[in-house]
Structure formats: structure tokens, C-alpha cells
Write a protein that binds this DNA or RNA. Structure first.
Length: 410
DNA sequence: AAGCCGGGGCT
DNA sequence: AGCCCAGGCTT
């Protein structure tokens, strides 16, 4: 259903649309004919019935932000595996700090949809901080494969060992104590303190920055606006239920106060939102322009052992791109250049190359396939500190190297 | 303060 | 296919 709502229509005219197709300014109070909308959840999105009717009030109405938000959260909180249910919350039950920490680290730069199944699998494999601390780091990295930002996994493991070894298996309960642990920065420390330990910490993530920029119509571009937005967030953070409050703000940012096409008609804070009253909510937060990504080139070597068809993997150095992860041997990635193969053999060059985009560059990588005999295989294994595997797809390879397997399949 | 780190979803 | 999104660590 892709109907668009006109700016004006006779009273009583009704429309129906998915909220994502709406232009937010049409819903601002500036329009000649007020819009009244009733929304209900439909599948993954929202279904709206629109009617053009006169509304009694179209300007900003006083809203007690934290109360309105908690009320909305009690009715609409998403049921996520790392959350305690409403019934348990009412009994005063606190969530397991280990689970809160694990979920928050996974959720850094990663969406709920991606994290949810991976979180469940991870928790089954490493159910406690002690179990995680006892595991070899290679097992943790393999389980993290495909999630990206692999320093998170190395720091997660370091942090588990610190908590298990130096804190008797218990996470520190204050922001400062948490902040001192590997992989726990300002955001994660505040989130764990609020959610697991009921501390009124000021939680700031991208979602909350966006909500604050809109609530207070902050037009300063990010990142310059960060201190101002933090000040606004601090002014609203309640002493009661700070964990629920923080999660409510993030849920609101993820589902209603979205980066594009915010669903203001569904927003419990609509009456208190300065940007919405001005009709500029879709333009906020403003951001400084980022540099364009350059393209780098390289070659990856898929080497099979003649006797059994096993494939050679290497482990990348701990520092830098894809640090500590398993990989196929590859050239340096940079300017277009003739590759230096790790061994002389009859290379087959795959007709399709691998394309992948990292945080700050595009990569275009030729795929060379070669076979070696057992003697050469042993020499290669030694000189590259490699390992032969008969199931590369099952080894926890980062996405860029999974794409190599895909290219060779075709 | 600025640059280094993946990957997935939406248009 | 291109654009958007976003914490922590290092230098």
C-alpha cells in the first residue's frame, strides 16, 4: 500500500498508508487541514488509517517526558532475549549483568535484528562470564565471525577474564568501575549501570542523540552537538527506573523516532517535541559531511592440497583490519599492482572478483585458485603459519572471505 | 581531535 | 548499487 497523503482534503476524507511512506511535514501543525491518525501494528510495520478532521490542539502541548516515555514503554516494549519481562520487573528482579553486558557489546554498531539470533547462540555456548573466560580467544572470534568490528570480540574475552579473575566473577556496579574494563566505553558503562544496577546514569547512544536533537530542535551538526545533546539528556534522566527509561529512549529511536521518516503520529513525546512543532524533525540531527571512501585492490589466494582437497587458512595479526581472524592468504590491499603469489603453481584466475566495503574503503579483490602437492603444502603451512581445513565454510571466516567461497562456487 | 575498525538494511 | 547508520580504541 503506497498511497500518499495530500496536504489538504475535505473533512472526513480517509486515507490508509504505511507510515514509512509519509512525509513528516504533512503531519506538522502548520498544514491548513489538521490530520488525525489512528495507528495499529501490522506485521513488521504500522498500518495507519488517516482521516482529515479538525483537531482541538495542533501546537506543542506540555508533556512530562520521562513519565510519558515509561508509560509508552510499559505498553510497547519489545520482547528481547536479554530483557526481563514486565512481570519479573514488577517483582523488582534485576537482569543478569553478564547478559546485559553481552547484549550491549553485541549491539554496538549492530542492529537488534542481526544481534538477536547471534546472542542466543553465543549465550548457549558461553552461558556465564566464567565459561567465556575459560574459552580460548580463537573460539570466541570464530563465534563472532560475520558480526564485524572484531576488536569487540577480543576485548569481550579480555573483559570476561578480568571480571572472572579480578572481580570474583561479578561486574562492577558503578559507571566508573565498568568504564575501566576492556571494551566498555562511555555508552556501555552507562547502559549496564542503568539497566543491570538501577543507577541513574546518563546513557548516550546514536538513537538517544537523535531523539534529543529533535526534542530540543538542536541544529548544531554532529559531532559538535554532542555536549549539548548530552546536557539535554542529563536534564531528563529520572531517578526512578533509569534502566527502563534508557531502553525506552533507544526503542523509541529505533522504531518511531527513526533517522528517516520518523513516525511522529505514533510518538508519545510528540506534544513535547520542538522539531516536530517546527516541522524540521526529518532534517535533524544535522551532520558534518564525511569523506568519500576510496577503492583498494588486491588478490586473494585459495590454495587446495592435491591429496585431500583441504584449503589453506592463515590467522591475521591481532592489530588492524579483521584483527585476529582466520583468512585466506592475500596480497596487501592498495593500488592496483601485480600480485606476488605465495607459491609457484598453475593459478586459475576466477572470472568474478570479490567486492566488499569496509568502514573506510571499498575493496576489489581478484581470486586466484591453485593446487599444491603435499610437500609444498607442508612448506606453505610453515612459512605462512597457516592451517589446512577441509571445511572452510565452517571455520568462522569474516564476510569478505566468505565471499571468496561464493565466487568459487559460481 | 581525528582516524581506524564491518556489516546489514533501506531506497 | 549507493547511501545511511554508529561505540571504542589508538595515535
Amino acid at each position: 500500500m503506497t498511497a500518499s497523503i495530500p496536504d489538504a482534503a475535505p473533512c472526513g476524507t480517509a486515507y490508509r498508508a504505511r507510515w514509512k511512506n509519509l512525509v513528516p511535514t504533512r503531519l506538522s501543525p502548520c498544514i491548513p487541514v489538521p490530520v488525525y491518525a489512528v495507528a495499529r501494528q501490522a506485521g513488521a510495520g504500522y498500518q495507519l488509517d488517516f482521516a482529515f478532521l479538525p483537531l482541538p490542539e495542533t501546537s506543542m502541548a506540555p508533556v512530562k517526558i520521562d513519565a510519558a516515555l515509561l508509560d509508552w514503554y510499559d505498553r510497547h516494549a519489545r520482547d528481547l532475549p536479554w530483557r526481563t519481562g514486565p512481570a519479573a520487573r514488577k517483582r523488582g528482579a534485576r537482569p543478569d549483568p553478564y547478559r546485559v553486558w553481552l547484549s550491549e557489546v553485541m549491539l554496538q554498531q549492530t542492529t537488534v535484528a542481526t544481534v538477536t539470533p547471534r546472542y542466543q547462540r553465543f549465550l548457549e555456548l558461553f552461558p556465564t562470564v566464567e565459561a567465556l573466560a575459560a574459552a580460548p580467544v580463537e573460539a570466541v572470534l570464530a563465534e563472532w565471525a560475520g558480526l564485524g568490528y572484531y576488536a569487540r570480540a577480543r576485548n569481550l574475552h579480555k573483559c570476561a577474564r578480568a571480571v572472572a579473575g579480578e572481580h570474583g566473577g561479578n561486574f562492577p556496579q558503578t559507571e566508573e568501575g565498568l568504564r575501566a574494563l576492556p571494551g566498555i566505553g562511555a555508552y556501555t558503562a552507562a547502559a549496564i549501570a542503568a539497566i543491570a544496577f538501577d543507577e541513574p546514569a546518563v546513557v548516550m547512544d546514536g538513537n538517544i542523540e537523535r531523539v534529543m536533537a529533535r526534542l530540543f530542535a538542536v541544529e548544531t551538526p554532529l559531532p559538535d552537538a554532542k555536549p549539548v545533546l548530552r546536557g539535554h539528556a542529563a536534564s531528563l534522566t529520572p531517578d526512578k527506573r533509569p534502566g527502563d527509561y534508557a531502553q525506552a529512549l533507544m526503542d523509541l529511536g529505533a522504531t518511531i523516532c527513526t533517522p528517516r521518516n520518523p513516525a511522529c503520529v505514533l510518538c508519545p513525546l510528540r506534544g513535547g517535541c520542538a522539531a516536530q512543532a517546527l516541522g524540521i524533525q526529518g532534517d535533524l540531527p544535522r551532520k558534518k559531511k564525511k569523506a568519500a571512501k576510496p577503492t583498494r585492490f588486491g588478490t586473494v589466494f585459495h590454495i587446495t592440497r592435491q591429496s585431500d582437497g583441504a584449503v589453506l587458512l592463515v590467522r591475521r595479526p591481532d592489530k588492524g583490519l579483521l584483527g585476529g581472524m582466520l583468512a585466506f592468504p592475500a596480497s596487501e590491499w592498495g593500488e592496483k599492482a601485480d600480485p606476488e603469489p605465495p607459491v609457484r603453481t598453475d593459478w586459475q584466475i576466477a572470472s568474478e572478483s570479490v567486492r566488499h566495503t569496509f568502514t573506510h574503503f571499498h575493496l576489489e579483490m581478484d581470486v586466484w585458485q591453485g593446487q599444491v602437492g603435499d610437500e609444498l603444502a607442508s612448506k606453505l603451512e610453515e612459512s605462512l603459519y597457516g592451517r589446512w581445513t577441509d571445511d572452510p565454510a565452517g571455520e568462522g571466516l569474516p564476510t569478505v572471505f566468505r565471499k571468496v567461497l561464493k565466487v568459487l562456487e559460481d
